[in-house]
Design a protein around this nucleic acid. Structure first.
Ligand SMILES: [Mn+2]
Ligand SMILES: [Mn+2]
Ligand SMILES: [Zn+2]
Ligand SMILES: [Zn+2]
Lengths: 150, 150
DNA sequence: GAATGAGTTGGAATGATTCCAACTTGCAAG
DNA sequence: CTTGCAAGTTGGAATCATTCCAACTCATTC
């Protein structure tokens, strides 16, 4: 039953939407709140389920619409791994993703600016990149072979 | 009308397949030859079209099967960008991809080992990655505002 | 030359996403 | 107040890459 947006977050939402000439709606508030509440890179379907608890009449189409809108105004990022369902991430800091193949969970990995620089530097002259995506794939301790105690 | 596989490439094919208990077939030879002939990261559909010129009866399902087999035995890599059709790349050297948004073309970008190292090093303890994918998105000179002459 | 197993084939099924046309809302103009 | 947009929402249909499946082909083994 998702917690309402903080004053700060509501403002961020309103501002970002306004910047691209769009309005805050009840649906958008809830979808945004869902993303902020649990930053686990949910799929559209995940968001749909969670948001529905607060707004039973919400439609899947609207969730797609809201998320597309948010991506458009830079409030969230899309995260793709292979051909799986697209996931959404409200973390705006530069970061890479680690996909745990045991659990399916996606973790944010902070990206130091110098790494980003060194990556840009490997591009041959004439290549101008506006976006760099980095994703790791493997296993994390999380999918724990529980070594401590027990 | 795709050139036949060189002796060397045919051996690589045969060896890799054998390693995972599979055989060389006429279809696999052609699909592999198509990948080697033009290393432009073709989609399944692209491969299908090109391969059909040499083998009119070839089916799309078989192209899917061959490519999956090749990925399985490490002969080619899958390349995904956002939700577009999967592309295939026979370049086995460690490299990143640059997707030119003007042309849709995908370019290989060589990845120096030290960059790979530095990337691995940003993973928090407990994260073991077996794969790192890096993709750039932007414009290259290729989609040329033709400045020279004219 | 029947049996076996791998591979191939065409078409059906799947599933995420997109499209669409009707409906709702919030607000502005008269 | 009514009326009239324009933006947003909705449910269901359409799309399209990919996967699934059951029948068929082939090469090899007994
Ligand atoms: Mn793996
Ligand atoms: Mn772009
Ligand atoms: Zn993230
Ligand atoms: Zn490549």
């Amino acid at each position: 039953m998702i917690q309402k947006l903080s004053e700060h977050d509501r403002e961020k939402l309103q501002e970002s939407l306004a910047h691209s000439g769009q309005k805050v709606t009840a649906q958008r508030e809830i979808v945004f709140a869902v993303l902020l509440a649990k930053r686990d890179h949910p799929t559209v379907e995940d968001v749909f389920q969670r948001a529905r608890e607060s707004m039973p009449g919400l439609s899947l189409a609207t969730v797609y619409n809201c998320l597309e809108t948010f991506v458009g105004c830079g409030l969230v990022r899309q995260v793709n791994h292979e051909r799986e369902s697209t996931r959404y991430c409200p973390n705006l800091a530069p970061h890479a993703h680690f996909r745990d193949e045991a659990t399916g969970h996606v973790h944010d990995i902070e990206l130091p600016p110098e790494i980003i620089q060194s990556l840009r530097s490997i591009l041959p002259p004439g290549f101008n990149s506006e976006t760099i995506e980095i994703s790791f794939h493997g296993r994390s301790q999380e999918s724990a072979p529980r070594s401590t105690s027990n």
